[in-house]
Nucleic acid binder design. Structure first.
Lengths: 220, 220
DNA sequence: AAAACTTTGTGAACGAAAGCACAAAGCCGT
DNA sequence: ACGGCTTTGTGCTTTCGTTCACAAAGTTTT
């Protein structure tokens, strides 16, 4: 097991690793112990050449003529994604979306634990949601709870302020659901999920279909 | 106003148009009537050169030495995105996320109207949520309600079946929140929003920080 | 009216990502 | 042990996206 030359996994590859991991997990659940790049690629919705190239960035974990060991590749990817440890997550903004996320089981399922819920509305602060007492950002700060990832589900006009305070708290990874452009220090990672944007992109294609016939696939 | 040579706006550009539109709307609300590419780019979180190139795909709507007319550019982008008409949306799957989306005001705000809510759970079917009666996919089919965009918020194992039935219903744009790879005909547009994937990508960067110091920005 | 200044629009350079195609490497049957 | 078969890993090519840098085009000042 030589040290793989992992100088820089391309961002596009990183974006696909979760899909590979999910497909592998499904395979393992079915009892499959070995899988070819062709099969795994199909399960993950990519081309086999792309899958092999992606995996090559992590090192050589396949066996020529056979394929990949499901168990081995799973733990390799999980390790690469940092899922061997639990990351503490705070959800800021307990509106409809924030509450839905708090209730979502997908967090704990794989390496993430919601350790705090934050809102500034006095009508919500102090209440218990999903077994956690809702607190203010100030209270979270004073409590000194370690937090790695911040999920922002506040209205857009509060998002920047929340982001600033999260960064001050030591959070260096932010998942932003608010429709706002966040400006953060360069060592902070921000990912944006925006429902309205997605719908508008779909509307663009819907609109174009009306004008110019001819099928076209759209990938995320 | 010559016909712009709009043979193919790049997908990457389409993905940024909503952000531009949002920034322009904010400007208009502040009373700004004209804006330079530099300012608008800053508001949208991109480089000015990229903004200008993006806009150039839609045609020339700026004035050299001055900038862009906020009102004019807004309606140009809105038209390009197909936001001049209302798109009927159906939400399938009324779990936590589905209900949160149903309650979310962001739909109607800009050209989208939720016309139906669908679930297969008998305990939910027939109930009224956000002023709409929850129905089954079969009922939706029989009712013949026109639907352009389908939002899937079911568990992963039901997503493909739902997608198939939506496509059969005439839906050609799908927004998929379920962690599953959907296979659809080539003329159907699919966009995927996956919380777990986003968190895992953040975990990757969080993990890498521990190993290799040195700041790096991450864009969505 | 002409000079000075500002900002757009875009050709060209650059870089990242995707896809192709095949040699290398391992299995299996004889 | 060896030949044939399968599948990986990867150099090369092509496509796509971003950034640079500047001429063209407009505004403002004198």
């Amino acid at each position: 097991m030589a040290e793989p030359a992992r100088r820089g996994v391309p961002e596009a590859t990183v974006g696909r690793l979760p899909a590979y991991l999910r497909a592998l997990t499904a395979c393992a659940a079915q009892g499959t112990t070995s899988i070819s790049s062709e099969e795994l690629a199909a399960a993950a919705g990519v081309r086999s050449a792309q899958l092999r190239k992606d995996l090559s960035y992590l090192g050589s974990y396949g066996v020529r003529g056979v394929g990949y060991d499901v168990e081995r590749l799973s733990s390799q990817i999980a390790g690469e994604l940092g899922l061997t440890q639990e990351w503490p997550v705070v959800i800021v903004g307990l509106g409809n979306l924030g509450r839905a996320l708090a209730a979502y089981g997908g967090f704990s399922e794989r390496g993430f634990r919601v350790v705090a819920l934050v809102d500034e509305d006095p009508a919500v602060v102090g209440r218990t949601v999903q077994g956690l007492t809702v607190q203010t950002l100030t209270q979270l700060d004073e409590a000194g709870t370690p937090v790695a990832i911040g999920v922002i589900t506040t209205p857009a006009d509060q998002a920047q302020d929340v982001a600033d305070r999260l960064v001050a708290l030591g959070v260096r990874s932010v998942l932003n659901f608010a429709p706002a452009v966040l400006s953060v220090p360069p060592d902070v990672a921000v990912r944006k999920v925006d429902l309205a944007t997605e719908l508008q992109i779909l509307a663009f294609h819907e609109q174009r279909r009306a004008a110019a016939p001819g099928p076209q696939e759209v990938t995320g």
